[in-house]
Amino acid sequence: MNLTLGTLLPTNESPSLPAIQTATRQPVTLTVNGVKTELQLAPWTSLLDALREYMHLTGTKKGCDHGQCGACTVLVNNKRINACLTLAIMQEDTQITTIEGLSSLDQTSSSSKLHPLQRAFIDHDAFQCGYCTPGQICSAVGLLNEGHAKTADDVRELMSGNICRCGAYPGIVAAITSVMDSQPTTV
């Protein structure tokens, strides 16, 4: 790092003042989709950035980075949360599930092993651009785990933390209620 610093800064502006050190990286162990990984992270790295930039699990999306869109929804200890509003270092003892961990399939296997919600989202065309979709699906898994939604209106209200700019809401509600109907207990 320091090497590039010296070579690339214009010489006339080379700082006479001391360099500003930021909080150092430290080992942070995350358990994502059942796999423990030790990362070197500074405290300021959000769980979302840790997943996307440090673990390259880009299925979890960044749509606002402020808890205002739900695209970053993941499950922490089976509860849905916004990964943008927690620090990775705060999640060391938790079980994190991302969209990549929902289907038990490997890279090559067919779509038949998809999570029932993933299948339902495809069948009900519950997305267009697909960017909010992993967050919607993780949120829907959380919704089913919570068990508070009984009606389509409940689903609408309790899925309102996931914005879909393409406006696929009717498909999203249809997909979720179809899975609710077929699996009345937790998923």
Binding site: L57, T58, T60, I99, E100, Q118, I122, D123, P134
Partner: peptide
């Protein structure tokens, strides 16, 4: 018909 890119989108494999 279902979208041909559906599986990529619901599994997080679609890269933006």
């Amino acid at each position: 018909l279902n979208r041909v890119d559906g599986v990529d989108k619901v599994t997080g494999k679609a890269n933006y």
